[in-house]
Computed example of a mutant assay.
Amino acid sequence: MKVTWTVSPVGYQRIAKHCPSCSIKRDFTPSGAFRVNSQKKVLDVWSIYKCVHCNYTWNIALFSRLHVSKIDRELHHRLMANDAATVLYFAYDNTTLKRNNAELSGRPDFRIQEQWSASLSPGERIEVSVRISRSFQVSLMSILQKQLMLSAGEIKRRVESGKIRGITMKKLKSRKLKDTEYKFQLSAETLFAQRRIALKHR
């Protein structure tokens, strides 16, 4: 029996940066707009971030000295239109964030889509696949807590008793997850204990 949890962040990943206006380090978040400069068919593109406290703006470079012939027309249109999905994409793009030496701050909320590949009967062990749609600051522990409706301590006890297998506590607590797939196993009772779904014996 298999179940897949597809995890997607809600909202933006914030960035910590010194704010000249506040004179201290503050969280910055995308403003929802791009800045595009065009000079002799060469483009410079930034995503405009703003301080969550005072709205001081800071630009993160997306493209520098890029010839217009080398950018996809549809992408260029989305940048010019301040397309919301494109703003969200670059807010979680690791390459862009690393190039700008961005310091991630806080943990965005997230949603989980659950899909089953087979039916379930009591006593069976379920293989869980967790798919991270975008790389962001989240841990498998927080995903399990949200989806199983269990505390961190209860999850730890289930790992120790073997009701949760194929994953270590160290891995569960790590927030350095990539946009990839993680697998482990749960007992049926662990998956449904707090979710009020009745399991019928054959």
Results as ranks from 00 to 15, higher is better:
residue 164 I to K: 03
residue 46 W to I: 01
residue 119 S to V: 04
residue 160 E to R: 13
residue 3 V to W: 00
residue 32 G to Q: 05
residue 164 I to T: 04
residue 45 V to W: 01
residue 159 V to S: 09
residue 50 K to C: 06
residue 164 I to Q: 08
residue 2 K to L: 13
residue 23 S to K: 13
residue 128 V to Q: 12
residue 77 H to F: 06
residue 153 G to D: 15
residue 65 R to L: 12
residue 143 I to L: 06
residue 60 I to P: 08
residue 82 N to C: 03
residue 37 N to H: 08
residue 52 V to Q: 10
residue 45 V to T: 07
residue 79 L to N: 04
residue 32 G to C: 03
residue 201 H to N: 09
residue 117 S to G: 10
residue 96 T to A: 11
residue 186 L to S: 02
residue 156 K to R: 15
residue 110 F to W: 01
residue 89 Y to S: 11
residue 187 S to G: 10
residue 111 R to E: 14
residue 156 K to I: 07
residue 126 I to T: 12
residue 163 K to W: 11
residue 112 I to T: 14
residue 179 D to P: 09
residue 59 N to F: 07
residue 128 V to M: 10
residue 85 A to Y: 04
residue 32 G to M: 01
residue 66 L to S: 08
residue 10 V to I: 13
residue 136 F to C: 04
residue 172 L to N: 03
residue 180 T to D: 03
residue 45 V to S: 00
residue 153 G to Q: 14
residue 5 W to E: 09
residue 116 W to P: 04
residue 35 R to N: 02
residue 63 F to Y: 15
residue 156 K to N: 14
residue 171 K to E: 15
residue 4 T to V: 02
residue 73 R to L: 03
residue 16 A to S: 15
residue 177 L to V: 13
residue 187 S to P: 02
residue 150 L to D: 05
residue 191 L to R: 05
residue 57 T to S: 13
residue 102 A to G: 03
residue 39 Q to E: 14
residue 185 Q to C: 05
residue 129 S to W: 13
residue 183 K to P: 01
residue 192 F to L: 14
residue 26 R to D: 01
residue 53 H to P: 02
residue 24 I to Y: 00
residue 70 K to G: 05
residue 43 L to R: 00
residue 196 R to Q: 14
residue 69 S to A: 13
residue 74 E to M: 12
